[in-house]
């Protein structure tokens, strides 16, 4: 993305336009995508810089101010210990977004890699798909407990407590959620590689590497993008489940999933407490979804021309 903007100043003068410029044009013309982009950037910038600007500390307890509704001092109210919900939403978003995006990216990369290899190379198919079956069958909870037991202390020692936990959490979510993407991508690749254009490309001696990057990957992009949207929601929720097991950040460290879970008990008395984290997660997922839609349209040359 940065490359596009860097070259944009002199790009219009050159005769052959960079194809990414076309993509960006198409993306811009997609209303939903632009709206999603704006919302998403607002959320990202908010959670990045918000905690520095907002004067409340998310862990500071003001017990006299507990269970308050929204007010000027506390725009989203306070929780049962008098902590400022807005501050907790901002710093919780940092963790949730970071974990959600990274874990999603990890699971997409692994899933796509395995899926493409298995679908494209018949020799690898059996082994890779049986491995996928194995991972699908592993019981999640005991597996996570084993991961905590084996790696938590070692990772904390190497990367510091917070870095270690982040790596642990992201890889735990990543390695337990890539299988669906892999199966879907493989299915599509199996069908794709028998298509005429692939046969044509192969007949002129295109090497496998270029076949995959040029012809196969662009055509399996849409299920990958759907997996990405669903993957973010999944990762944000799974993160909260991990912190209950003791795998996540310390208990006073807020995240969206955790805020949502903690406030379900107060659904009747203080419904706004559930709404804020629920809204934040839904908005993030929706905006990523619309961006994905826009990106898919923009990358499809058949649509781009229209």
């Amino acid at each position: 993305m940065t490359e596009v903007t860097a070259t944009s100043a002199d790009a219009p003068k050159k005769a052959p336009r960079n194809q990414w410029w076309d993509v960006w044009d198409q993306f811009k013309s997609h209303k939903g995508a632009m709206l999603g982009f704006v919302v998403f950037m607002t959320i990202v910038l908010g959670v990045l810089f918000g905690p520095m600007l907002w004067h409340f500390d998310p862990t500071f307890i003001d017990i006299r101010a507990r269970n308050q509704g929204p007010s000027w001092a506390h725009p989203m109210g306070t929780d049962q210990l008098g902590r400022d919900t807005f501050a907790r939403m901002l710093s919780g978003g940092r963790v949730s977004l970071a974990v959600g995006m990274t874990a999603m990216a990890l699971s997409l990369v692994v899933g796509t890699f395995v899926g493409v290899l298995a679908g494209y190379f018949k020799r690898l198919d059996g082994l890779l798909m049986r491995t996928t079956d194995l991972f699908l069958a592993l019981p999640l909870l005991p597996l996570l407990l084993v991961i905590i037991m084996l790696f938590r202390d070692k990772l904390s020692a190497t990367f510091g407590p917070e870095g270690g936990i982040f790596i642990l959490m992201v890889s735990a979510i990543g390695i337990t959620s890539w299988m669906q993407t892999a199966r879907i991508v493989r299915g599509d690749v199996l069908a794709l590689k028998e298509r005429e254009f692939v046969l044509a490309a192969r007949s002129i001696g295109t090497p496998n590497r270029r076949m995959i990057t040029r012809h196969v990957l662009p055509n399996v992009l849409s299920p990958i993008l759907v997996s990405a949207t669903l993957g973010i929601a999944n990762a944000i929720i799974t993160e909260s489940a991990l912190s209950f097991l003791g795998l996540g950040f310390p208990p006073d460290f807020p995240t969206w999933g955790r805020l949502l879970f903690d406030s379900v008990d107060y659904l009747q008395q203080y419904p706004e407490r559930v709404i804020w984290p629920g809204l934040a997660i839904s908005l993030t997922v929706l905006s990523v979804n619309y961006m994905g839609d826009g990106l898919r349209d923009a990358l499809d040359p058949r649509i781009r021309g229209r």
Partner: peptide, 15 residues
């Protein structure tokens, strides 16, 4: 449809 299904997926069943 998009809106409902996305909300549906991002709201976990415990809620």
């Amino acid at each position: 449809g998009t809106f409902i299904s996305m909300i549906g997926f991002s709201v976990p069943p415990f809620f």
